[in-house]
Design a protein around this nucleic acid. Structure first.
Lengths: 116, 116
DNA sequence: CAGTATCCCCCTTGATACTG
DNA sequence: CAGTATCAAGGGGGATACTG
């Protein structure tokens, strides 16, 4: 990516396939690795770990390991991560607006398709 | 990408390697293909064409072909594309803030390194 | 429970050459 | 000028198995 462009910096940091989902979930509060997995049922262990590590390197997420058996690891947004809250809110708003815009609108003379 | 998530929709539309640059340039006004190339010296013809086509399919950019020889094609943001202006502004602001944050700050007792 | 270690796929991007 | 066509490379992502 063209990271000399400020705009691209954001993508370079949240652009991974699962990162926005992770951040959105962590915006709700601290969570354990397993909780993240359950929140994103289709992500593999490997990918979740990788994406979390990258978010950590980029300073968006902090990782807290408890010296217990079995292991317990908690992930929390840093202040930098938290600072994305507003932007993510905007993305969400635009995204739903755009999705609706691009969804073929139901015509008036058309029955509801909610039963399909 | 997980496009069932509104947030991801934005990335799916703007996530191409050159798309944000293109949009930013078109936010300045309508431009010809050649002007876009010059504005982004490292993009190949092929990639510029492809990214523009995708933006067009996604309804962010409109393409106007003039029936002239030599050919003349102008690209303009649609209203949908324009609607990203604020968000891109936010990304830009966050990006420059983040970049500065992550740049090793010069220490007080340190000489300027601008001569290196 | 929360990871690594391997192996592999394919999709995006790129280089280069050609054309209406 | 504004594209296609073709071929090649790279890396992000995935499947599966193993471990402290």
């Amino acid at each position: 990516m063209a990271e000399w462009c400020n705009t691209e910096v954001v993508l370079s940091v949240v652009g991974g396939k699962w990162k926005l989902l992770i951040i959105r979930y962590l915006l709700l509060g601290t969570h354990r690795f397993g909780a993240l997995r359950q929140a994103m049922p289709t992500v593999t262990q490997r990918m979740l770990t990788r994406q979390l590590r990258e978010l950590e390197e980029d300073g968006l997420v902090s990782r807290k390991v408890y010296a217990e058996v079995p292991p317990k690891v908690e992930y929390t947004l840093t202040e930098v991560g938290e600072s994305l809250r507003d932007i993510i809110g905007q993305l969400d708003t635009w995204g739903s607006w755009y999705r609706e815009l691009r969804t073929p609108p139901a015509r008036d003379d058309e029955q509801s398709t909610s039963d399909s």
